[in-house]
Structures are given as structure tokens and as C-alpha cells.
């Protein structure tokens, strides 16, 4: 009995030190009102063992919209607002969706919004976090508590310093999407 207690006491300070919390993330990183930059996306499709790479520009206005402009290999523009998703190719609107009418896509878009804009409070409601922080550079692993979210993503890994630099979204199927941000300007 006393041995168990001893180990618990012993292990406490260590685990507390290694554990990254959303509160710490909030303190370390900034969540700018506006941000823009370049992205490189790599989508691994396990079924065919291929990786689809794309690059482009992005910008967001916190709480208002996200512009996701893919330049290579195809040209298309994705505009997300809290209520709609619009996909454009040149002047041609491929689709326009009311998020509220389609519950599943609404959930994913809300999630993407929270991650992109580093809305840690919102993420804390649906994920548990683990990870570490080394000299202001942090790596976080988010595991969904929300069952519905778990349907789409088994875990999300994030890397950043004062800004978010990398997102990797793992799916149950073994597919993953890695997004790397560069040349960020506020």
C-alpha cells in the first residue's frame, strides 16, 4: 500500500512537467486577429499508397472567414465562414453550402476553424491534449473526446511556436493530411 502511494507521489511532479495543457498553449502562442501565408499540403491515401501534394496561399480573419487558395496542381478557392462553405474555381462557383443544413460538414468546418485560428478554449471542450514544450517550440497531440469528431479524425497533431506551424490530421482509415505553413504575416 505505502509502496503504491510512494510511486504515485514520485510520479506526480514528472508527469505534471511533461504534460502540455491548453492553458499553457494559450500562454505560449498568440491567436492573431488576421493571418496570412503560404501552405503546403500533403495528403496520404493509404488505399493506393499515394501522396497528393498541393500548395497555395491562405488567409483568415478570426471569427469571420478563412480563404484557402490552392494554386498547384489545380486552381481552386475555398471560402469558409461560420455558416457557409463556398468552393470556387476561377469565377465558377462549384458549390455553395449552408453549414447548418448539413450537420457533418458543419462539424468539420467548425473544427478546422478552431484549429486554424488557435481557438484553444473551443478545442479543450472536444479534445484531450498531450505533448511537450521545448524552448517555446511545442508539439501537441489532440485526441477527440467527442465521439462524432472521432468518426472523422482519430487524432490531430499540431506543431508551433508563438504561431501554429503544422497540422497533421489522422483518419481512422490510415489516411492523413499534413499541412505546413510558411511565410506567415499578421
Amino acid at each position: 500500500m505505502s509502496r503504491v502511494l510512494f510511486f504515485i507521489i514520485l510520479s506526480l511532479p514528472f508527469s505534471a512537467q511533461a504534460q502540455l495543457t491548453f492553458i499553457e498553449l494559450e500562454a505560449m502562442s498568440i491567436s492573431p486577429e488576421k493571418l496570412s501565408g503560404e501552405f503546403k499540403q500533403e495528403k496520404y491515401i493509404s488505399e493506393l499508397a499515394i501522396t497528393l501534394s498541393s500548395t497555395g496561399l491562405f488567409s483568415y480573419h478570426r471569427g469571420k472567414n478563412i480563404h484557402w487558395k490552392t494554386l498547384e496542381p489545380i486552381q481552386s478557392e475555398l471560402i469558409m465562414t461560420p455558416n457557409t462553405i463556398i468552393n470556387r474555381q476561377g469565377d465558377n462557383e462549384l458549390f455553395h453550402m449552408d453549414v447548418n443544413a448539413a450537420p457533418t460538414i458543419g462539424l468539420i468546418s467548425e473544427l478546422f476553424f478552431s484549429i486554424m485560428t488557435s481557438d484553444w478554449q473551443k478545442l479543450a471542450a472536444v479534445f484531450v491534449i498531450s505533448g511537450e514544450n521545448k524552448d517555446g517550440v511545442w508539439v501537441a497531440e489532440l485526441t477527440p473526446i467527442d465521439e462524432t469528431i472521432a468518426q472523422f479524425s482519430s487524432r490531430i497533431s499540431l506543431r508551433g511556436d508563438h504561431l501554429l506551424r503544422e497540422i497533421t490530421l489522422y483518419e481512422k482509415s490510415g489516411d492523413y493530411t499534413a499541412i505546413h505553413f510558411d511565410r506567415l504575416s499578421q
Partner: peptide
Amino acid sequence: KRALTNLYSPLNVG
């Protein structure tokens, strides 16, 4: 085109 755009979209999961 729509299928291709979806394929490259960061939202296209599941």
C-alpha cells in the same frame, strides 16, 4: 473538376 477539388480540399475527410 468538383471531385478533384474535393480531393485536394483540407476539409475532405471521411
